[in-house]
């Protein structure tokens, strides 16, 4: 069931997600400030809402410097990749019944594929910069995102088994009686962790790791190219929050309020959760992150899949 007005849907979702991403920067700064006992941006416009606009103007007018030692073509392409892949993922996200760009039957696989492609952006940015810190960041990003992707996909298979479909709309519809977070609580926790790792947000921001690698993979980036990474990161947060909402918390389903409002409420909740995580947690070490991923998360995801499969089989027969 694709939307009757595809162009409208595409434009609508593009505008809404990009505005949300910009708004999210403001929200994060305000919320962090709230938890850290300070004010945050509150000068430009009401409640500092226009701060993002001011920052955008600033970043557009900054010198867009490409280091002479960098691999130019790759250096320029890298920031575009991340924004494009994340925005592509939004194509299959059902916001409300009928509000979706493309209702793919393999929607979930498409999202996973796009997030795998997003890794290239970070890795290539790190390598093409020809900077030692960026290189270390790129290497970390490659290892971290590849290994967390493995069980990110696996943790979702329980949901797919229960819904019997990769189609995100069908998955939401399958949760009419019970949100999947109840039968798939382990899957939810695993996906939450993997999702945080995919977005490279604070407990998992090792590729950037400001205190170790200065700015990690985007050390050499400036101007709007840096801005693209920034926007890509926030788009990633929105995407992961949308996915959690759709896969585990019944998407737009909810009483009284219109579906789209329910969807936004749930998404905002998880966005706030990601910001709180950033405020509260220190950063794990690289080797610890990898060993948690492979030694703890992956076996748990496999066990989750195995048990869900067995239960579903027994139920059907």
């Amino acid at each position: 069931m694709t939307s009757p007005y595809p162009i409208l849907s595409i434009l609508g979702i593009l505008i809404v997600t990009l505005t949300l991403a910009a708004g999210l920067i403001w929200l994060e700064r305000r919320l962090l400030a709230l938890w850290q006992d300070r004010y945050g941006p509150n000068r430009v416009g009401p409640f500092g809402l226009l701060q993002v606009l001011a920052d955008m103007i600033k970043i557009f007018f900054k010198e867009d410097w490409i280091p002479p030692f960098a691999d130019k073509a790759v250096f320029v392409a890298a920031p575009a990749i991340i924004v494009v892949t994340v925005l592509m993922s939004f194509a299959v996200v059902p916001v409300a019944p009928g509000i979706i760009v493309s209702d793919l039957d393999v929607g979930l696989l498409f999202v996973l594929a796009m997030s795998s492609l997003g890794v290239y952006s970070v890795v290539l940015a790190g390598w093409s910069s020809d900077n030692k810190y960026a290189l270390l960041g790129g290497v970390r990003a490659a290892a971290q995102m590849l290994s967390y992707e493995v069980f990110m996909g696996l943790s979702l298979m329980g949901v797919v088994l229960l819904a019997g479909s990769f189609n995100l709309t069908a998955i939401v519809e399958a949760q009419r009686n019970l949100w999947f977070v109840a039968p798939q609580f382990l899957g939810f926790v695993l996906f939450l962790i993997a999702g945080a790792a995919e977005t490279r947000r604070l407990p998992f921001d090792l590729p950037e790791a400001e205190s170790e690698l200065i700015a990690g993979f985007h050390s050499e980036y400036s101007g709007m190219k840096f801005g693209m990474f920034f926007v890509g990161e926030y788009l990633g947060v929105i995407l992961i929050s949308c996915l959690i909402t759709i896969l585990f918390f019944g998407g737009w389903l909810g009483p009284v309020l219109p579906p789209i409002v329910w969807f936004l409420i749930k998404v905002m909740f998880f966005i706030a959760f990601f910001i709180l995580m950033r405020a509260a947690l220190p950063r794990p070490r690289f080797d610890q992150l990898m060993s948690w991923g492979w030694k703890l998360m992956l076996p748990l995801a496999l066990a989750n899949l195995l048990i869900t499969g067995a239960v579903v089989l027994a139920w059907r027969s």
Binding site: Q36, R38, P203, A209, S211, A279, P282, R283
Partner: peptide, 16 residues
């Protein structure tokens, strides 16, 4: 020190 280890919030509390 907490900032070095990646926890950004304690800095604001200690400064306070």
């Amino acid at each position: 020190h907490a900032l070095d280890v990646g926890a950004i919030t304690p800095l604001f509390y200690t400064m306070r």
